[in-house]
Design a protein around this nucleic acid. Structure first.
Length: 299
DNA sequence: GAACCTAGAGATTGGAAATT
DNA sequence: AATTTCCAATCTCTAGGTTC
């Protein structure tokens, strides 16, 4: 159920908060697969595991549970999962905070890190300050009718144990209008059937490889529809026997090599290895460990 | 009519905080 | 010190609508 906002909006737009160090890290994250780090630091079904993985790569505590912006208490970092539909790039609504917390401060300055829903690869980022049209449209939610006006910010109640648990969300439409670019490479269409339950294991193939490759993890045969790979860039795949760990009990998806991004810090080989989960957890490269962290973050 | 898309709501998770 | 409750967060499901 949708409820009216509790916290009145500030009258003035937010001041821009910059951090050059964070900007460099965000740029360096492009092409980085988050799945491997997520598997290393979070439980397999944890809701926030890819956000945790991003925090880890940025040198923050992976399980940050503060009510304040994550980065220097000035910039909120949000992982935004995106996928492709016929209409272009889309994302889901995003929770801002619980209903008893002021959402405006969290929305002052946000670094949105965009990740592909299928591959969990970082595909881009955007710094967004609550000013200009973004301020106006968010503030308009204060007087909007929760049911008929499709406000950019809303409260949704969750009836759980111990009563309602309302929380603030930004609408997907607002994110589409103010955060998402029209197009971005490295973003795949959502897959039906496979990849619906849990993260699929990924294998990379060239589009000319004709429907059969060997599994990068265990060497067993993987079969797929090569025409579908050319058409969509990703296909559900059949993993042949033997089905040993970690390949047993997991869905498999084959990706077209030419549609994948390469992370500059990892390089082509390590990007592929990380994406395909063949890097040991204690050998993972952490983004924040590359390049010295300047004392002043160059503000 | 099959496949796809969307909004709304529910289900889960690990760490932090609170309590015993 | 050990246990329980609280909490942030978002992934997943479902029903109903749209589009090929």
């Amino acid at each position: 159920m949708r409820l009216p906002l509790v916290h009145p909006p500030p009258s003035a737009p937010a001041e821009v908060a910059n951090c050059d160090h964070l900007a460099r890290l965000a740029a360096a994250a492009r092409g980085l697969p988050l799945g491997a780090a997520a598997a290393a630091i979070a439980s397999p079904r944890s809701r926030g595991r890819h956000g945790n993985a991003l925090q880890w790569h940025l040198g923050l505590s992976p399980h940050d549970a503060r009510a304040e912006p994550d980065w220097e208490r000035r910039i909120e970092i949000k992982l935004l999962t995106v996928w492709r539909t016929r209409a272009g790039l889309v994302c889901d609504k995003l929770k801002v905070c619980d209903g008893d917390i002021d959402p405006w401060r969290k929305l002052d300055n946000v670094l949105f890190v965009l990740a592909d829903r299928l591959t969990r690869v970082v595909v881009g980022h955007r710094f967004v300050t609550r000013d200009g049209d973004r301020h106006t449209s968010l503030v308009a939610a204060w007087r909007a009718d929760t049911h008929f006006d499709a406000p950019a910010l809303f409260v949704e109640a969750r009836d759980g144990e111990g009563g309602a648990r309302p929380a603030y969300y930004v609408a997907a439409a607002w994110l589409a209008a103010h955060v998402l670019p029209t197009d971005l490479s490295g973003v795949f269409a959502g897959l039906r059937g496979a990849a619906r339950s849990g993260d699929p294991l990924l294998a990379v193939a060239d589009e000319g490889s004709g429907g059969a490759i060997t599994c990068p993890r265990c060497g067993a045969a993987i079969g797929f529809d090569p025409e579908a790979l050319r058409r969509r860039g990703a296909v559900p795949a059949h993993h042949g026997l033997p089905l040993a760990a970690p390949c047993a009990t997991r869905e498999h998806v084959v990706l077209s090599r030419s549609r994948l991004l390469v992370n500059d810090v990892l390089g082509a080989d390590d990007t592929l290895a990380t994406l395909q989960s063949v890097v040991r957890h204690d050998r993972l490269t952490r983004l924040a460990d590359h390049g010295a962290e300047p004392d002043d973050h160059r503000h």
